[in-house]
Amino acid sequence: MKRVYVNEKWCLGCHLCEYYCAFAASGEKDMARALKDIAINPRIRIEERDDISFAVSCRHCREPLCVKSCLTGALTAQDGVIAIDGERCVGCYTCILVCPYGAVSPSENGAVQKCELCVKNTGSPACVKGCPNGAIVYEERG
């Protein structure tokens, strides 16, 4: 299955992936309008310190601890894509307790949010399309 992979040495720490993520999730047509005057809460996050930076988003694990641990059944694996049903999530944060990557985070509405590879919006990861330096790629690596 295709997943998002990180090439740490190419990451510029520009945070564009975060903006493209937030834009894709907003459902708006115009990026400037969608993101104007808001603090974004993207599903992909840059970690940075000194001259190191890299993007972290859901790994879509084959043995997804978050799905197996979900108290309500809100997290499921659908053809390998780990999806969250915001209606069924009560925000207990058990997925945050178990995700070894720190890739699940609280959303504004009490449920959790995570990368779903843009399957519910643009169809393929907007963060990757927006990365100017190939520091994240969307490909098959077994």
Binding site: Y5, V6, R59, R141
Partner: peptide, 13 residues
Amino acid sequence: TSKARQEKLGEAR
């Protein structure tokens, strides 16, 4: 370490 990170973020899990 960056090697450990590469395994976590650069390989299929």
